[in-house]
Design a protein around this nucleic acid. Sequence first.
RNA 1: GGCGCGAUAGCAAAGCGGUUAUGCACCGGAUUGCAAAUCCGAUUAGCCCAGUUCGACUCUGGGUCGCGCCUCCA
Length: 489
Amino acid sequence: MLKIYNTLARDKQDFIPIEPNTVRMYVCGMTVYDYCHLGHARVMVVFDMVYRWLKASGYDVTYVRNITDIDDKIIKRAAENGESIHALTRRFIGAMHEDERALGILPPDHEPRATQYVPQMLAMIGQLEKNGLAYRATDGDMNYAVRKFDGYGKLSGKSLGDLRAGERVNVNDGKNDPLDFVLWKHARDDEAEEVKWNSPWGKGRPGWHIECSAMGSEILGKHFDIHGGGADLQFPHHENEIAQSEGAHQCSFVNYWMHNGFVRVDEEKMSKSLGNFFTIREVLKKYDAEVVRFFILRAHYRSSLNYSDAHLNDAKGALTRLYTALKSITPDVTTSHSTSLLKDNSLVASYPGLPLSGDGAGGAAVDWNEPSAQRFKTAMDDDFNTPEAMAVLFELANEVNRSQSAEAARQLKTLGGVLGLLQRDPQAFLQGDANEGELDDVAINAQIEARVSAKKAKNFAEADRIRKELLETGIVLEDTPHGTIWRRA
RNA sequence: GGCGCGAUAGCAAAGCGGUUAUGCACCGGAUUGCAAAUCCGAUUAGCCCAGUUCGACUCUGGGUCGCGCCUCCA
């Protein structure tokens, strides 16, 4: 039975869906005013893994991940760039999709944008007003009266008293209470028309928190199973979502709240404000996308994850071991794949990226009674323990190397596929693509030929010279009973 | 200040009240012309102090250190 750590309960709980065999899941996505960094990559990969595991477990999953395409930072950035917010957000949504595809992220079933759901937000704010939870402030904003909602603080474990004691709460004009937050921001004269919507409370635009409440309930219903996001969204964003949704609908909002840990750099949270972030595309220039995905899934999703070249190199070495094992087995085991998991989404096909197949739900079938699959499942069912699940992969690799078992290799590839890994042709992974200034395949093979001749002539000095020369350009040669093969170091 | 999370071998990272995690690195052996890859084996753990227990890395209490949230943040 699947257990999930529920932030709301501060404990692992048995996962019991609202409707049998069905999971409705919402994850807070990106605010699209810049390129995604590694922290965003972690959210994408982690919840992609969750999505895949739920599907592999036989659930009919509806996965929603929103896009915030209207907010202060977007407006500011668009103004700086002298472009419309629409042009800005379109650009970065495109970039985000490229990053996702590179990392082998399955497209969510719905990817709603805030600007498409303004009517639903207005309806919800109206309901909150009717329920006595929202009020119009002196400055024209519609605010949420936090103290009128009983359960406020239940997710983050904060009490209103504690929050008040904190010195860092802004005293914002117009609010009845410093803790209140904005539902609807009144339009300002200096703002472009494209950021103004009509509302019963005058022209304006939505506050940040209301979009997730409105889109979640519109697509998944007033009460759904899982809501996820980065740990920094726990408060105030998710706390406010609960206040809005439960305050408007008068029913329970979400059963299981999941929060992933941060990516850190030198033991500090990676964030825009600290300026210590690496964009996904930056990292992908140096490291294979699958190595990055592997690196992320190698730690438990709730732990913090330290980013460094040393750790990425370590991940690369580990993933190389798995592919090396697959390489040694017959091609039909290691190269076949299907794309049955992929919903019809023509957008996706145009991006280069990792194969999306093999999650166990639609690709190669997994026999969950088989011992290693059983161990893998036990690990994954324990709050998505991917490090433990990966240990099973390495044990299978050892078995493949030891016994040359095609069955073990198939199992390795299939279970790897559940995590969105190991679906490429092993040789393609091991040899990679030639970067600028590096030898291409033709040149490498010519060198190998020359070395084979030297070896035949027992000219080992020459053979070793060639091998050393190739090694210096990052090419490792391996002499096997079937001939000499190569890979990139 | 309030609330929360963490501390495991050289590095990374899990489970587990008693029996090999796993990967990388390192050492020995097999294999190889020599390597590489692979296999076999060895070594290296559980922040500190108490307590519970026949037995604690694992449970309880206290401490120390690190990190996060309380402000936009994945």
